[in-house]
Simulated scan of single mutants.
Amino acid sequence: MPLVTAGVVVLDCAEPEKLAVFYKELLQAEETEATADLVEIRAVGGLRLGFRRDANATPPSWPRPENSFQAHLDFLVEDLDAAERKVVALGGRTLEAKEAPGPYEERGCADPAGHTFTLRRTRQRGPKQG
Rank of each mutant, 00 (worst) to 15 (best):
P65T: 11
P16K: 01
L80G: 09
F75S: 12
G92K: 02
P60Q: 11
E25K: 08
S61K: 05
G91D: 07
L76T: 10
P112M: 01
E25Q: 05
Q70I: 13
T122A: 13
G130P: 10
V9S: 14
R93D: 04
A110M: 01
T35I: 06
E105G: 15
P112A: 02
P65E: 03
T32K: 01
A113F: 07
L38C: 02
D74V: 10
V77L: 08
S68P: 08
T32H: 02
A34K: 01
R93E: 05
V10H: 07
E106S: 15
E66A: 05
Q124H: 14
L47P: 04
K86G: 04
R48F: 04
G50P: 05
N56K: 07
T94R: 13
A110S: 10
V8I: 11
K128T: 14
S61H: 09
L19V: 00
L119I: 01
R107T: 02
W62L: 13
R48A: 11
G7P: 08
P127F: 09
E106I: 13
D81I: 09
G126S: 07
Y23G: 00
P65L: 02
W62D: 08
D54Q: 00
L27K: 06
T5S: 14
S68Q: 07
R48I: 11
L19H: 04
Y104D: 14
E25Y: 03
V77W: 11
E30P: 00
I41A: 11
L119F: 02
F75D: 09
C109N: 07
T94S: 13
S61P: 05
L73I: 08
